[in-house]
Design a protein around this nucleic acid. Structure first.
Lengths: 333, 333
DNA sequence: CTGTTAGCGCATTCAA
DNA sequence: TTGAATGCGCTAACAG
């Protein structure tokens, strides 16, 4: 049994060097493909390293100046189905790019503290998927040299990169679709005003309606949850009868469909319903929701791309990537 | 402008010491609550540190022997809704405990490579939420001194901790419920054989059925997805008519409900359906699924608890925590 | 109470 | 091609 095992200590390059009868530098070189090292020697060292279960400690390397490959992802406190899909896809995409995503979430208080503490790590970047974050926070990141990438919401700050779907265009497209089907009395279930996306989506709808010479018939604000969509139906119908309900996201649309059915109304025969995001559940047989796709794969690709660009050029100007939405035709329009 | 900012370098304790006119150790002490340091001096140092945007670099501290506070979470390649809920809750729970979860996921190939590479970090622990992982992998963790916590599946290895819901008991409870309602012809939609949970759940059901002197009427194996539950209905009914369908998880139960409705069958009047896990969607108005709760909060609490216990006593024997399932009565039984 | 010193594991420079 | 020496940022032991 080796010394390292006896002491229950992690095996280090020095242990491998001792066991293989070479210098510590040789071990380091064995794990650096482009370093000069006799091929046989390298093989022998890697052999010994494998037997001992040695892997270079990333912490030592990071201290040396290497990239930490650590990336924080901050999600909101009550993640919607869409947020969860994004988090999963983002983690996979970062893994594929050789990065390690640290998830920050939980209640407002917990995540605020965690976000602040995670800055103690020399992160490659911080990815924001949450609505509001105090502006002095961006300064803190700047001082620490940690790049910020905002997704789903534009942060208009010097070195910050942004990735966002074209909310207005997407909502215009789906509003036009309903218009083309002859709908005239539109209800809207909007999102919380704190979210930038909610306002942009509403604006896109209003734009289309205005072009058609129509006004909104009824409007209710939800909180992006299924439950709020369900309850919004009653409030909406109390304002005026409608023949189409546009929702600012899929979760509320799903709730609205149930709310309508419970009142004996058929979707889409009596009232059409549309969503935004195209979450997995939108395609489930009970819903078959007509919606606007917020392309997660494109989002992940753009984030990974911006991340790599910024690592290569830390001082480059902030860039904004706009994702193209797409109308998904199913059976609720 | 300070030297550190000019060079776009992270501010270090040395920078703060220079700016505050104290020694580096004093700066270190200022950030260590229990260290001896004149109160005024500490205040002054923290003041300067704040202005400079300094935070102790966790990498340096970790190298020093401090815990890295980094914990890897490995999820499967095609996470179900339940997996996503677990991942979100686990991340939040770890954050609250001052730990930073690194998510590992994506395709089989990507996550295999990522899992191997992430071991370069001196992780506090690795949490496994995925089905199969080669056994030599546990050895690798052992050699590196990285504790393993397996959730949802028992890993019977010396120092490995486990957290798992009582699958058999849960399934027995819900089978008994259907039995007490007078159901006689049972169909079962099972999970993939690679998952330990699928077999245990089936066993619990068979146990209850045997006690009642009944046998299974029809059986189909799905892959834990909604789609597979939907398609399983046809195969099941082709075998024999049933008046109750038990499913090994909620996603398949949700699919089965839709499959039944599409064939003009009413749930639960014609056929009862039950699930397992109690995901968020199980409570949605279109489903109102009667199911067995797999208690996520308890799971997270147990994992955090085991993690802390193991950090305090790295050589303690592996412990298994059994979570208590609970039948959730809704409207499909 | 405080400054000086050593060493964590590593990659890399320098000198051979 | 190789080994010895250096320093990354930090904490803790030591000496004052």
């Amino acid at each position: 049994m080796t010394d390292a095992q006896e002491r229950n200590r992690r095996v280090t390059a020095a242990d491998v060097a001792r066991a293989a009868g070479v210098s510590r530098s040789a071990v380091s070189r064995a794990f650096t493909p482009e370093a000069y090292l006799d091929a046989d020697k390298r093989r022998a060292i890697l052999q010994v390293a494998d037997e001992l279960g040695y892997r270079p400690n990333a912490i030592g390397a990071a201290l040396q100046g290497a990239s930490s490959n650590l990336v924080a992802i901050v999600v909101g406190d009550t993640p919607s189905p869409f947020d969860k899909e994004v988090a999963t896809a983002l983690a996979a995409g970062l893994n594929a790019a050789g990065k390690y995503p640290i998830m920050i979430g939980g209640s407002q208080a917990v995540s605020r503290a965690a976000v602040s503490d995670v800055l103690r790590y020399p992160l490659d970047a911080m990815i924001l998927r949450t609505g509001s974050l105090s502006p002095d926070f961006a300064d803190a990141c700047g001082k620490l040299g940690i790049p910020l990438i905002s997704s789903g919401r534009i942060m208009d700050r010097p070195l910050v990169d942004n990735v966002c779907v074209q909310n207005e265009a997407g909502m215009e497209m789906i509003t036009d679709l309903l218009l083309s089907r002859g709908h005239k009395a539109f209800g809207f279930i909007g999102g919380p005003s704190g979210f930038g996306s909610a306002g942009r989506r509403r604006a896109g709808m209003m734009q289309s309606l205005a072009k058609a010479g129509l006004d909104l018939t009824a409007e209710v604000t939800g909180d992006y949850t299924v439950q709020s969509g369900f309850k919004a139906v009653e409030a909406l119908l109390a304002q005026a009868p409608v023949d189409a309900i546009l929702c600012a996201n899929d979760a509320m649309a799903i709730g609205a469909i149930s709310g309508l059915r419970q009142r004996g109304l058929r979707v889409p025969e009596d009232v059409a319903v549309t969503g935004f995001d195209d979450v997995e559940m939108a395609g489930w047989p009970e819903y078959r929701l007509t919606t606007v796709r917020n392309p997660i794969n494109d989002m992940v690709a753009a984030i990974v791309d911006l991340l790599e660009a910024r690592i290569n050029a830390p001082r480059r100007a902030g860039e904004t990537r706009w994702l193209t939405p797409e109308v998904i035709l199913r059976e609720t329009h």
